[in-house]
Design a binder for these strands. Structure first.
Length: 611
DNA sequence: TCCAAAGGAACAAGGGAAAG
DNA sequence: CTTTCCCTTGTTCCTTTGGA
């Protein structure tokens, strides 16, 4: 049995002796480690959770988050079921599930349970049958995706009850699982992706936001909300990440050639991060408009008393009903956002727009009006689509949006057709390799791949200039080309693969895959990576983290050796062959690099000598 | 062996009761 | 009389698996 004094660190007074502990190991250390991996901090002073509490609020255990999903509610569950459910939450945490996930599972189960108990004669866990659950879900008339969530949740709680307590309950676990899978399948077929925001509405919203942002006569809450909307439209961040921004996250950099000061925002994101890993960090380019909004917010917040003692960028005024927790919860922002649309775009916001959901807004007793409010994620869609239409390659967009997987490549771009995208991308790369004679750099056998592809084309009597799509078709499975973060993945049976699949995946994740290639025109992105590693190294060095700094330095050297140096060398060759002007017109993003190549090369050799 | 589909986890919004 | 908050529903995105 787990020692209760150890348990007190995170949740106090756990009556371990009331739990048969079939689901828990005897290892108190493991319990602590598990907790440490799913929360950021132990709250100082009061606010620690006691096992007996009806609500377990984990928000104080986290930094930069304030969300209902971290509040686990046990209200409505009878004893001893409530206690069983509390152990279910502990069990999930031991399994290193995020608390928000455990909460979704429990709250779905709870709502199903409570409704059945209220509406039927089966008013206890001992009486509720599979049939009751099925009927309750059917009665709710919800989407397939929602059904999946409920079935899955109920299934998981029941598995815990049966496994941990060895209860005999009249439910068929297999049937529940099956129903969950079925619902998932239909949900997949439905394919209801978020549409883009109509251009007319988008422009109206952004220009209204900019106007209000600059208007010093406007109220504090209205102006700060306008600033946030401007940033949302420019950055396309998730709402949670946007609300968690701090005043020190805007950075700037002088562009070497033009002397222009460019800004970027460095932020952390919870969403793509696993519970036992560090939060992933990203840099996004901050447009002048966004930078302006950031600076205005930073200045405005000084007027607000709630800004004392914290550095959150977005703070709303004190409210009568509010606990005034920080960061500002999503629903408070959403309310201000809705109000903003109605106040500054009274006609447009009440019009019906394609793909924009409408929601209620209270005006008077029993009187609501419908407002067209774009989902905050639709700004993400808009940004991606806009970038795409400007001709930005998908691989760059993926990187920019902080997407980790190839799955998301093109996900946000509407209309979306991943297969077509891949074909188009493949054709482009083939044209470059075979037609322009570019050599894939950084991986193994880049030169050989070029020669083999060119030979394949020659053998089959294709003309690279005119037959690219025919070539791609003919190559079929023999050459697979995909855009990846930071490069191009080329897998080909025309060359032997030196590594087996498992290691490949590992290498792939660290951008070291032997199949990952870059081309000289990606040198600008590589150079940015190079500079980012420099900053990380220096930051770690100056805080005395020598070991971690050394790791960064090794990464940096590897980056130079495998990618940056070969790319620059190739760039020189191409410059000689095609001339500076041609290159700069063809690859405008390279002009900075071209202008400063000598300086950059010197910079590299300085870093390579470091130890 | 390979990758599309299944699975799983997290983020976000809507609606209405509750709070002052 | 408004705004907040609780509960429920809906969407997005990352990882693993199963079957061709």
């Amino acid at each position: 049995m787990i020692q209760s004094n150890l348990a007190h660190e995170y949740v106090g007074d756990i009556p371990w002796d009331e739990n048969p502990a079939f689901a828990f190991s005897d290892d108190a250390e493991q319990y602590l480690r598990a907790f440490k991996s799913v929360v950021d901090v132990i709250p100082v002073g009061g606010g620690k959770i006691s096992f007996a509490d009806e609500i377990w609020d984990f928000n104080p255990y986290f930094d930069g988050i304030n969300d209902d999903s971290l509040k686990v509610q046990f209200i409505g569950l009878p004893q001893p079921l409530a206690d069983y459910c509390k152990f279910f939450i502990l069990y999930c945490i031991m399994g290193k599930k995020k608390i928000s996930t455990a909460n979704v599972r429990l709250s779905s189960f709870r709502s199903i349970y409570c409704n059945i108990a209220k509406t039927t004669s089966h008013d206890s866990i001992w009486l509720i049958t599979t049939e009751d659950i099925m009927n309750e879900v059917k009665r709710r008339n919800i989407s397939a995706g929602g059904q999946h969530d409920i079935f899955e949740s109920v299934y998981q709680v029941y598995v815990f009850l049966k496994g941990n307590y060895h209860f005999e309950l009249p439910v068929d676990l297999e049937r529940l699982k099956k129903a969950a899978i079925e619902a998932k399948t239909t949900a997949k077929k439905d394919d209801s992706k978020l549409p883009n925001i109509p251009e007319e509405y988008f422009i109206a919203i952004v220009s209204a936001a900019v106007r209000v942002m600059r208007d010093i006569a406007q109220d504090y809450n209205v102006r700060t909300t306008a600033c946030m909307l401007v940033m949302l439209s420019q950055l396309g961040l998730r709402l949670g990440d946007l609300l968690a921004l701090r005043t020190n996250q805007l950075h700037s950099k002088k562009l070497a050639k033009s002397g222009v000061e460019a800004h970027y925002i460095h932020y952390k994101s919870r969403k793509p991060s696993k519970p036992h890993d560090k939060m992933l960090e990203f840099d996004v380019f901050s447009t002048p408009l966004c930078t302006e909004a950031f600076k205005i917010l930073k200045e405005l917040r000084n007027k607000c008393p709630l800004s004392m003692g914290n550095d959150y960028l977005f703070i709303l005024e004190k409210r009568r009903n509010s606990k005034d927790d920080l960061p500002i919860p999503n629903h408070r922002f959403n309310h201000e956002y809705k109000k903003f649309l109605l106040a500054f775009l009274p006609e447009m916001s009440q019009r019906q727009w394609d793909g924009i959901p409408q929601s209620q807004y209270y005006v008077a007793r029993n009187k609501y009006i419908r407002v067209s409010v774009p989902d905050t994620r639709q700004y993400r869609v808009h940004l991606c689509t806009a970038l795409y239409e400007k001709g930005i390659p998908l691989a760059y967009i993926q990187r920019y949006m902080g997407h980790l997987s190839e799955y998301m490549l093109g996900y946000y771009v509407r209309p979306k057709d991943t297969f077509q995208e891949n074909v188009k991308y493949t054709e482009e790369i083939v044209r470059e390799i075979a037609g322009d004679g570019l050599t894939p750099l950084g991986g193994s056998f880049g030169e050989e791949i070029k020669v083999n592809i060119q030979k394949f084309i020659e053998d089959n009597n294709f003309n690279v200039l005119t037959d690219v799509s025919a070539i791609v078709k003919a190559m079929g499975e023999r050459v697979i080309i995909r855009g990846k973060t930071g490069g191009v993945c080329i897998k080909t049976s025309l060359m032997p693969c030196p590594k087996e699949t498992r290691t490949n995946e590992m290498f792939c994740a660290y951008n070291l895959c032997p199949n990952l290639f870059t081309f000289f025109y990606m040198a600008d992105v590589t150079y940015m990576d190079f500079q980012m590693l420099q900053h990380t190294y220096e930051a770690m060095q100056s805080t005395g983290k020598t070991k971690a700094a050394q790791k960064e330095l090794n990464k940096l050297k590897e980056l130079c050796r495998r990618r940056l140096l070969p790319e620059l060398k190739e760039l020189r060759k191409e410059l000689e062959k095609q001339g500076k002007d041609t290159i700069c017109i063809k690859y405008p993003t390279l002009s900075e690099i071209v202008a400063n190549q000598d300086k950059i090369e010197k910079e590299i050799s300085t870093w390579m000598r470091k130890s």
